[in-house]
Computed example of a mutant assay.
Amino acid sequence: MTFIALFIGVVYLIIISKLTVGFDKVPDFHLQDNSPKTQFSMVIPFRNEAQNLPKLLKSIDNLNYPESLFEIIFVNDDSTDDSVSIIETYFSGEQVNFKVIPNHRSSNSPKKDAISTAIGLAKKEWIVTTDADCIVPKYWLDCFDSFIQTNNTNFIVGPVSYHHVTSFLDRFQLLDILSLQGATIGGFGIGKPFLCNGANLAYKKDLFHTLNGFEGNNGIASGDDIFMLEKATKTGLDHVHYLKNSGAMVTTTAERNFKLLLEQRIRWAAKTSKYSGYFSKITALSVFSMNAILVCLFLFWIMDIASLRTLVYLFTLKFCIDFLLIFKVSRFFEQEQYLGTYVPSSFLYPFFSVYVAVNSIFKGYKWKGRSYKK
């Protein structure tokens, strides 16, 4: 057991260290004083988001970008609440170029169908996606435009975090997403991008068609973002970038209770087995193994089978290397004030992570009122 724990610890240390170093290799991008010229089709799928849409709509209304250069395509995925009327009422009488269209289902993935439906009607050169429960920053499109004008790119990943963080559960989720963002940025820094978030993503419409959209992974309900990234990287890493600018950060709300958090994370984890990239599979396996061995060592220690020293050494290793990465990300996102929750979260996270991973393998999950089976 000690040898296995040591091996897992060393592999984990190497991978997280590489991602931590990679984080610093991605240069900060500073918004340039360019005249905006990139045209965007903003794609926003939604299903029963009446509670969240007003905040999103207000943030869109506050965008600094010229309205003539972007359109908004809202895709209604069988909403039964007032979502559609909220959108139409908010933009009535304004000059915003928007439309609300129904989702055309053709696969097991409602969100992928929604994005494909919208892109089929999109008139602009660039597609930029976000979610209905998000808030976009004032200079969001300006950042994308400036980056596009100064880089030869066709696929851009943007930063995502949480806002209105108040409870311990909120802070626990924030630290989790900061670690994911750290891995995302670090992956780009070492030339092995393997994570992204559809809440803040932009790519050329022509690229979507060249890659045949989501063909090949339509059977998986989630993964509209990561599987598209995997396809894009195969066309050449030189044109796939991370937009490392906190002014481009899209924020969303943490899940309001533990049950919803579990469902969300199980959904996220369910697509892991479908990753095609070698590095992404190794990283996912390493993270699971590290958390699993900590849980096993703890249980074995209680049963007086394993040594407490091995458990303490391994936990300390994970605690330190994880903190270094999360600290770098929290400083970049200007959310260092939440690091105080890191200590208790570190003790809870291995159990949480293992539970999510095991359930993602053997059980289905619920999402937006729908059930999905393995």
Rank of each mutant, 00 (worst) to 15 (best):
L311M: 10
G216R: 14
S106A: 09
F194Y: 12
N108C: 12
I4G: 00
N359K: 13
I190A: 01
K234W: 00
N151Q: 12
A114Y: 08
K363D: 12
A270Q: 15
F362D: 14
K112F: 01
E334W: 01
I119E: 11
S273C: 13
N200I: 07
K366A: 11
Y365W: 12
I14P: 03
F258S: 11
Y313W: 05
I60N: 05
Q149N: 10
D142H: 04
A132Y: 09
D133M: 10
I220P: 11
K328S: 14
L314P: 04
Y203C: 09
A221H: 03
F3S: 10
V11L: 13
S85V: 08
T20P: 02
F7N: 10
S360A: 15
L169E: 05
P45G: 04
L178N: 05
S85C: 02
T251M: 06
F29Y: 15
C134K: 03
M249W: 00
C134I: 13
F7G: 11
S85L: 01
A254W: 00
E94H: 14
K259G: 11
S286V: 08
A199M: 06
S17T: 14
S106N: 04
L262W: 00
N108V: 15
N62I: 01
K204G: 03
S116C: 08
V354T: 05
R309F: 07
L308S: 07
L229I: 11
C134M: 09
N52F: 12
G9N: 09
L53S: 06
F352Y: 15
C196H: 00
L348D: 10
K274W: 12
K366M: 10
